[in-house]
Amino acid sequence: MNLPAGPEHSSREADEIDADQIKVWFRFVPREGWLPQDTEGLWARRLGPDTARVDNVPFLQDGVAEGDTVRFRTDDDGQHWAVERVAASDNCTVRVLPVPSGPLGRDARAVHERLAGFGLTGEVFSKEFPLLALTVPGGADLRGVKELLARGQDEGWWHFEVPCSTETWREA
């Protein structure tokens, strides 16, 4: 789990690290009472002229998970904008925000320690806003993850949401 680093929601000086890794940008309507951004850039591995596999977990974009394949269009400035998800991975996206007054406080590392046994990976938004964006692999103990997430919420450890799930997740 990459705890120190957070996402970048603005254009970087170099959007491409190598010929196959690109930043794919997503546009969305900001949620009321949530972060004010209306775009999010996710690293992706180019698969074809207009498709790429998402290589990191989204903090803001709903309906996409790490490992999904998206179709994009490239604008006149060279930025790649997601058009649609064309193939889903078996992964789910879960976001967890520790309750500051709860038993774990604002400690993202403590949250991750509770979930680490399930093989979840992800990132922390920032120290000031310790939102964890996590990838739940399709082969994980989905029922166990769901039970722990619900228990943690019931006991005041965190709030969570599942912005991208699979049928297997929903049935677990």
Score class of each variant (00 low, 15 high):
residue 162 V to A: 12
residue 67 G to P: 03
residue 49 P to Y: 10
residue 81 W to C: 14
residue 162 V to Q: 07
residue 5 A to G: 12
residue 67 G to I: 06
residue 150 A to N: 15
residue 31 R to L: 06
residue 3 L to T: 07
residue 96 V to K: 02
residue 144 G to T: 10
residue 80 H to W: 00
residue 72 F to Y: 05
residue 37 Q to R: 09
residue 149 L to Q: 12
residue 69 T to Y: 05
residue 63 G to N: 05
residue 72 F to W: 10
residue 12 R to M: 11
residue 75 D to Q: 07
residue 50 D to H: 06
residue 119 G to W: 03
residue 89 S to Q: 06
residue 48 G to H: 01
residue 68 D to G: 01
residue 2 N to M: 13
residue 103 P to H: 03
residue 158 W to I: 01
residue 151 R to Q: 15
residue 102 G to H: 06
residue 25 W to Y: 14
residue 131 L to E: 01
residue 48 G to F: 00
residue 132 L to Q: 04
residue 126 S to K: 13
residue 172 A to F: 06
residue 135 T to C: 01
residue 95 R to W: 03
residue 21 Q to A: 13
residue 158 W to Y: 09
residue 103 P to V: 07
residue 93 T to C: 12
residue 135 T to N: 03
residue 167 E to A: 13
residue 93 T to W: 10
residue 148 L to S: 11
residue 80 H to E: 07
residue 57 V to R: 09
residue 150 A to L: 11
residue 157 W to N: 01
residue 106 R to I: 08
residue 46 R to K: 07
residue 133 A to H: 04
residue 113 E to T: 15
residue 131 L to D: 04
residue 52 A to Y: 00
residue 37 Q to Y: 06
residue 13 E to R: 06
residue 13 E to C: 03
residue 30 P to G: 05
residue 42 L to P: 00
residue 171 E to R: 14
residue 67 G to W: 04
residue 109 R to E: 15
residue 159 H to W: 07
residue 60 L to E: 00
residue 68 D to R: 00
residue 20 D to P: 01
residue 68 D to H: 02
residue 16 E to S: 15
residue 33 G to C: 04
residue 156 G to W: 13
residue 25 W to K: 11
residue 22 I to E: 03
residue 159 H to D: 11
residue 25 W to L: 09
residue 172 A to W: 02
residue 15 D to N: 15
residue 60 L to K: 01
residue 65 A to D: 05
residue 47 L to M: 06
residue 24 V to W: 02
residue 56 N to Y: 12
residue 35 L to P: 07
residue 36 P to Y: 13
residue 169 W to Y: 02
residue 47 L to K: 08
residue 55 D to I: 11
residue 21 Q to H: 15
residue 146 K to V: 03
residue 152 G to L: 06
residue 105 G to S: 13
residue 20 D to L: 05
residue 106 R to E: 12
residue 158 W to C: 00
residue 30 P to F: 00
residue 126 S to R: 10
residue 39 T to C: 08
residue 49 P to C: 10
residue 14 A to P: 09
